[in-house]
Design a protein around this nucleic acid. Structure first.
Lengths: 185, 185
DNA sequence: CTCTTTGATGTCAGGCACTGACATCACGAC
DNA sequence: GTCGTGATGTCAGTGCCTGACATCAAAGAG
């Protein structure tokens, strides 16, 4: 395990957040990030598939948490309810990190390439959610539609949570967004 | 206008489709595409912001068509109905191009970078749709939610249309997906 | 205590994506 | 015929990312 300075990955993530906030994503090279983290550029690319991935290291944890919550939901919950339970669980991971989420969102909002990557992660979350619903016996296209709807609710709720001055709970934001979706006609 | 061989852009689009189908996206360089189209690599990048964009040249037309249909929908249509009218109009543009759509989808499905770009275009479509709804007097978050739901319906319907052996109308596929969404509840 | 193994890291060379600066050329306007 | 205009060609350069190989700290075997 750690024979050198420990947590090289964490150091790179923090260095990247700092540099992206200071000069912007495009004005920061992979070598810059590595240097501030005390490693070489080559090591950076051993930990992250590309320069953008350094901002999405926790997306797999989010996905896993959502899937587990969906599988743990009451068996008679309708598909959308189960999927939304997954989104609430995922949101819970961010509960204590409002300030960090705001900074990260600002960085992503400032760069189309990073928005692309975020959309890919959300699509992966939707796909994992749909798989979880299918393993609960939900057939397509209902599984796909419920999963994608839940992720949309997560996006809308998260956006409001991040833009709020006095941060409410993210759970409230997600629940409100879910209610607004159901109120559509 | 055209003082050289006309339709350089169209030639590049066709050359790219051929090469991506033959060897795959990553195994094709921008220089390869340019060469087959009879231009230089530098000219390729004057027409397309990056290598992926060559597959998404028609996305702005799709977006414009959807917006116009939404604005033309009956004023008393509920938000989701109006948004879906936009998706049906957009789908209409593909009606006569099933084979082309199948080939293009296969290329995109084979490469994560292209999927990212497609997600970005769909997000732009959703944002334009939401804007159109807002200009009809729909407030947020209903506008965002209805727009994103409509785009999801478009995606699901399109996917079924593309994977169908004996292609039905794409309008039927979209309408069916919309019905499945409404049946969620 | 020494040797070996293991895995993370460093070093180096190179391909491809993309860009800025400048030259060139075809065609239309006058 | 000259001149302007816009698309194209040419060239040099930066940054992203990868493969191949060397190195080194620490853990385990004897």
């Amino acid at each position: 395990m750690g024979r050198w300075e420990p947590d090289a990955k964490g150091r790179m993530v923090r260095a990247a957040m700092e540099l992206f906030a200071e000069r912007g994503f495009e004005q920061t090279t992979a070598g810059d990030i590595a240097e501030r983290a005390g490693v070489t550029e080559r090591t950076f690319f051993r930990h992250f598939a590309d320069k953008r991935e350094v901002l999405f290291d926790s997306s797999r944890t989010l996905e896993r948490t959502a899937v587990e919550a969906i599988l743990a939901a009451p068996a008679d919950d309708p598909p959308l309810d189960a999927a939304l339970a997954g989104m609430l669980a995922a949101g819970g991971l961010l509960e204590g990190r409002h300030e960090h989420s705001v900074r990260r969102s600002a960085i992503i909002a400032a760069n189309p390439g990073l928005q692309e990557r975020e959309l890919l992660k959300l699509a992966a979350l939707a796909e994992a959610t749909a798989d979880a619903l299918r393993s609960r016996g939900v057939a397509d296209p209902a599984a796909t539609l419920a999963a994608q709807s839940a992720v949309t609710v997560f996006q809308v709720g998260f956006a409001r949570w991040v833009s709020a001055e006095d941060p409410p709970g993210i759970g409230v934001c997600i629940t409100d967004a879910a209610a607004a979706l159901r109120a559509l006609r």
